[in-house]
Amino acid sequence: MSVLPLLDIGLALLVVAVAAWTIAARNLFASVLGYVAYGLLLALVWVRLHAPDIALTEAAVGGGVTGVLLVTAGKRLDALKATRSGAGPGLRERIVAGALSALVAGALAFVVASLPTPAPSLAPQAAAAAAGPGAGLGNPITAVLISYRAFDTMLEKIVLLLAVLGIWSVGADDAWGSAPAPLRRARPDGAMVLLARILAPIGALIGVHIFWVGADAPGGAFQGGALLAAMWMVAMMARLLEAPRIGSRALRLALISGPAVFLTVGLAGNILAGSFFAFPPGFAKPLILFIEAFMVLSVAVALPMMVAGPPDGESKP
């Protein structure tokens, strides 16, 4: 192995350079473009860290959906002609900020370099427990997310729900119940519609695939859901689909279904397996897939609603 370290170093330099570009770029669009490129590169870093699950999540959420969120926001700010903001800090402040940041980065680098060897790890416990509550799952990360640390994952889905409600709540009172503004006001032209018509169904299929293999291979509910969310947004950008009204009962049920089913199964575990979030022996894998199916639904609906923003009185569904 002599080429690999060079590849790693090249990749590392590239990631840092692109990150620096997103900070230094003059305009917002260029900066966000840089951020998407950064998300792609970071996914490669995650693969090199043997973390394909995170690579998928980072590419989908960190790069893709966050990039779209920011570029959509920039466009809407433009439309408002309200992109006033204070002048940047002066040179002296910039130097102080730079020195402070360099200090923090240096300290952190030192600390990371002095992590203890051998590193402590829960991998042995996770491997030993794989025969137990996470039985039948080939992907230990899915086992951690849905079994050992199910409580975190369930609560994090409630965080997602609160964020959706928080975003809706900044809308105007008289718009309440209506649909968010479309991701694109103008009618798109043929090429974009054609792309969306082909991309969306294929992408949705891939999203379902990623969710389905997540029990045993990299992937899972969140990654699959995020890909489905991206494809829904593709369809919305081409105006093939419109965002639903936020008052819609079906939308509300879809949003809560993930955490609600998760919570219900957790409580059922209390009766069937003697402990909250314990899975009855032999039923772990089907139950986990059952929970994940609803989480995919919640994530796939929540992310586009968060990008679409608060209800907008002008857009009639």
């Binding site: 840092v16 990150a19 900070i23 923090v104 980065a105 952190l108 680098a109 990371v112």
Partner: peptide, 12 residues
């Protein structure tokens, strides 16, 4: 080290 650099850049 990349992580540390990113934290520094972002902070700036």
């Amino acid at each position: 080290l990349v992580g540390a650099a990113l934290v520094g850049l972002g902070l700036y």
